[in-house]
Design a protein around this nucleic acid. Sequence first.
DNA 1: AATATATACTTTGCAATACAAGGTACTAAA
DNA 2: TTTAGTACCTTGTATTGCAAAGTATATATT
Lengths: 116, 116
Amino acid sequence: MNTENAKSQMRKGMLEYCILLLLHKGPAYASDIIQQLKEAQLIVVEGTLYPLLTRLKNDRLLRYEWQESTQGPPRKYYALTLDGEEFLRHLDSAWNELTNTVNILRSGSEAEVVLT
Amino acid sequence: MNTENAKSQMRKGMLEYCILLLLHKGPAYASDIIQQLKEAQLIVVEGTLYPLLTRLKNDRLLRYEWQESTQGPPRKYYALTLDGEEFLRHLDSAWNELTNTVNILRSGSEAEVVLT
DNA sequence: AATATATACTTTGCAATACAAGGTACTAAA
DNA sequence: TTTAGTACCTTGTATTGCAAAGTATATATT
């Protein structure tokens, strides 16, 4: 067991949340997203991102629009739908619960509810 | 896509960390662990826990000792090995990075490094 | 002794998903 | 026409959470 694998496992499921968080701030296309996640210290590759975006689109949490690029082929700009915004709020709750759980286990005693 | 599935995915990978955190405080056997995680608001079932404990043991992060019970069959008490303690510190870092990433994406701008 | 109940540990099969690796398509410059 | 750059997509694999069913041990009841 190596640390990289463990970190990768830890990111599972978080990715979806992070992408919705990111798109909550505004539309973006795949390379945008990868770049912005990298700046937030989350490394994602194309093979991970594209299927995930497609899945979220099929679930009606995201939609996209083609937009011309001044340089290169057109881009798919993804944005949250209303369902996506609502779903994001659920994930916010789930994240809060998870951090709360870890805090309980770390401290060994009391719960600290993090509100943001 | 339902919220339960998303939450389940989010917990993936975190489980390992939570179990190591829990065992860091002292040995426990499976039903113990399930109970303590439930108190920390993390629902885990046997079919998830047993294979995970076995894997962690095979990776030399955990060891166990049989102990008699006053009521029922003997129990496998699991505890962290030295490797397990070291690995836990790596997961602490990974967790800190992840919360940092989410905080960056949530706030939209600045990083807040959480030290515990 | 035989049966029932509670407790604890284990295994099998399935579904979800991160990732590596390779592929397709479009644009513009050499 | 070729090359380089950008963007999007697909296939195959490994990992792992979970439901469900199974095995084993100890104690109480009949």
